[in-house]
């Protein structure tokens, strides 16, 4: 009996340790095959830092002009994060991360008439062989590498509830470009930490990467 209890105790201790190791060392990924994460990382890494060359020429003045300067704040928001990211302004033709303000027809094409006012932004990521990474299968085929990305933003700027929601959305989408997934949904152990990567904007008051996001970056890069 005592022997049995000891075994049970050891089993649960093992389980607990396994659990704590798992949550500490794995970043939230965008895709999982069953419960196994599929790691996606930026392809161009120099001295341990993902090199994001960002351009905002195709953004409307709502996103670029002062006093809010949404674009430049978003571009710089991940620069130096956890010592793993460099974000640089780049010309449109040489950029690897291009921001666009979508036009109304594109927004309807993507989200339909019923949802077009609910979607604030969309990141689209591509592998080094120019394949869009859109699900777990294309994620596996990409060899885990993201070479470039487009970030599309809503033409319906009144869909944003406040200044913070614009900033949150733009910073959030760059997080996806870095390969980060949502902690609160779409993974085997969902949780709701303070994070720029939470799946929807509700009433968050922050608009830059949080400790959780820096930990995810450290685990990934």
């Amino acid at each position: 009996m005592a022997k049995f209890s000891k075994k049970v105790l050891l089993f649960f201790l093992g389980l607990f340790l396994l659990g704590s190791v798992t949550t500490e060392t794995l970043a939230h990924e965008m895709y999982y095959m069953g419960s196994s994460p599929i790691s996606l990382k930026w392809n161009n890494i120099v001295s341990g830092r993902a090199q994001l060359k960002i351009n905002g020429d195709n953004l409307s003045s709502f996103y670029t002009s002062s006093p809010n300067s949404y674009y430049s704040i978003a571009r710089d928001s991940w620069n130096g994060a956890a010592g793993k990211v460099s974000c640089m302004q780049e010309s449109f033709s040489s950029a690897t991360v291009r921001f666009y303000t979508a036009d109304a027809t594109l927004w309807e094409f993507l989200f339909g008439l019923i949802f077009q006012y609910d979607f604030l932004g969309l990141a689209e990521i591509f592998s080094p062989s120019n394949a869009a990474i859109i699900d777990e299968y294309s994620a596996i085929n990409s060899q885990g590498k993201i070479a470039y990305a487009n970030i599309l933003l809503t033409p319906y700027t009144s869909s944003f509830t406040n200044v913070t929601s614009v900033r949150y959305t733009m910073c959030h989408e760059i997080g996806h470009v870095l390969g980060l997934g949502h902690p609160d949904i779409g993974n085997p152990n969902p949780s709701t930490p303070q994070s720029i990567m939470l799946s929807s904007f509700t009433n968050q008051t922050y608009y830059s990467p949080q400790q959780h996001d820096l930990d995810d970056l450290t685990a990934k890069y």
């Binding site: 949802f115 609910d118 604030l120 799946s199 904007f201």
Partner: peptide, 13 residues
């Protein structure tokens, strides 16, 4: 069902 798109930011209607 409670899924949301992996790459989009959505404000729940």
């Amino acid at each position: 069902h409670s899924g949301v798109p992996s790459f989009a930011t959505m404000k729940m209607p």
